[in-house]
Computed example of a mutant assay.
Amino acid sequence: MSRGVSRRSVGHRVRVWPRVRASLAVLTAVALLAGCTPTDDSGPPGPDGPANAVLSVTTIGSRLPSSTRNRLESQVSDVLAAYVVGAFLGDYPRQDFLGGFDRFTSGAAKLAVADIDALTASGFEKVTAVRATRLDARLSFLAPDDRAVGASAWVDFAFDVAQGGSTVKVRLTGRLALGLVDGTWAVFGYSLVRDDSDALPVEVSSS
């Protein structure tokens, strides 16, 4: 099972706790709206390490009504949280990282599989744990007549990857392009730079 994602009702943040076991399908369906009651998945960090960073999203350059903006931020946060959990977090040792692409379109997922070592933690050996140290995203929505049809998420994600008695710092920055597929947000493109503390930066793009 994947490491849990617990959404709190203060602002637009997603708390990623270590060692909270829950279904990812259920977790990503939880709305991130102010005034909601925290889910049963909320709780203190596990005894084996500090909590992960908070997924913080901010919408830029938007004149959308606040209620619409809150709803869209919640929906896109679900997509970003699903990617972070499936691609980097979870219970280690693990070998299946394809779950990170569950919220990608079929075309983007096929391209992402070819870039899996850059887009996930799959390229590391003997990993014992991965902790998120920064999960920031700035969102911009394409919303003619206040109806969102597309979005861009400029992300700045950082992780500590523990392996073989040492820790590698990983930073993932760039843009995820999202659209609505049958009424559900999905990633259809990406342009990201992966920078590890022990390797040269790698740039990957779906184009």
Rank of each mutant, 00 (worst) to 15 (best):
L119M: 08
R171D: 10
V168R: 09
V193Q: 12
S66D: 14
R131M: 08
S6V: 01
L72W: 12
V127P: 05
P93R: 06
A31F: 07
S122C: 05
S77R: 00
F88E: 03
G123E: 13
V57L: 02
L89W: 02
P38C: 10
S166K: 11
L98Q: 12
A199P: 04
S77L: 05
D40Q: 15
Q163F: 11
R194P: 02
F88I: 07
S42G: 10
R71E: 10
G100N: 08
L180T: 09
S207G: 14
G100P: 03
L135T: 02
A121F: 05
R13V: 12
R138A: 07
Q95L: 14
R171C: 12
P45G: 02
W185D: 01
V170R: 05
V76P: 11
V155W: 04
S77I: 09
G189M: 07
R94N: 08
P50C: 01
Y83H: 14
R15A: 13
R71F: 11
F159R: 14
F157E: 10
P47S: 14
A25T: 00
L72K: 01
T58Q: 02
V16R: 02
F188R: 06
T184K: 09
V84H: 15
P44Q: 13
T28H: 05
T184E: 10
A162C: 09
P93V: 07
T184P: 01
T28E: 11
R138E: 14
D146I: 00
V113T: 06
S166R: 15
A153L: 01
D115N: 15
D96K: 11
V76A: 10
V187P: 01
A199H: 08
R194C: 03
V79N: 06
G164I: 06
K126F: 06
L55H: 05
V10N: 12
Y190G: 09
D156K: 00
S106T: 01
A25Q: 00
R103A: 06
P45H: 04
A108G: 07
A53M: 12
